[in-house]
Design a protein around this nucleic acid. Structure first.
Lengths: 137, 137
DNA sequence: TGCGTCTTTGACAATGATTTCCGCTATCCG
DNA sequence: CGGATAGCGGAAATCATTGTCAAAGACGCA
């Protein structure tokens, strides 16, 4: 039997697959689904399992390194975003996204939540519309 | 072969099932998943297919009569809300919801979208937190 | 540097909400 | 009232995501 070796610092290991996902996200623009990213990795010649892609993305999302969006349509979309909290303005037609910031909104959300006694507050905000190009086309 | 009878005004039909879903939503409080609502209808003795519940909810959501929320966790939640545009403050722990309004946020979203040339703008905003009761417990 | 252990991987199956299919029924209009 | 069709509904299909578990690689230590 193996005694629980408390000394083992269970840190995150630096693996080839994790690096691959991370660097891929650093290069691509816009949002991509997990399956998209998996396909891209395969095209690049990286052998990475789909399961691993999901796990890695979840980990990155948890640690705040990437953003997750749940558009109406079912798939989760992941994106490496500029640091700092912000939201997205998304075109319904062509899918292009613009990062927008609204400090006033952040503070409003926190204030409203606090008024109702809520703590540990987070929020999601997405703006959908039709961009100029798609509207004129 | 059936000739296309153009005279048939293909309007929405008023069916027992649609009425049942609608009136159920008028009575219950808070958000419920489609499957929840389906179970409630069966408890009431209404014989309504799960498929129909989904279809009806989608229709009601499209016509703006009910709100849809996509919480992290997978299920779509539906709710008959008070009239007017508003958002929700949701407790992560007990699921209780508070309707909140933020005119400033609405106008901010529209303004930002307009600045980027977006038209036909809508947005989703949800605030998550831990409510007072759950925090002290 | 070599070894042992433990994390991580990855192929496959399982899950579970939502959608599709298609024959049947009920509703609506004339 | 009667014919035509919108809507219903049960089951099967779909599909992204998660669980499982044996095998392989990474890291700390001697």
């Amino acid at each position: 039997m193996i005694a629980d070796n408390a000394a083992q610092s269970a840190a995150v290991r630096n693996t080839r697959q994790r690096t691959a996902v991370s660097s891929l996200l650093a290069e691509v623009e816009g949002f991509h689904s997990a399956q998209d990213l998996h396909a891209m990795l395969r095209d690049r010649g990286e052998r990475v399992g789909l399961t691993t892609v999901y796990r890695t993305l979840q980990g990155l999302a948890d640690s705040g390194e990437i953003d997750v969006m749940r558009p109406p349509g079912g798939e989760h979309l992941y994106r490496r975003c500029s640091s700092g909290h912000h939201h997205h303005l998304v075109c319904r037609s062509c899918g292009s996204t613009v990062e927008v910031e609204g400090p006033a909104v952040e503070s409003w959300a926190d204030r409203v939540a606090a008024q109702h006694g809520f703590v540990d507050v987070s929020h999601t905000l997405e703006i959908f519309g039709t961009c100029k190009d798609c509207a004129t086309a």
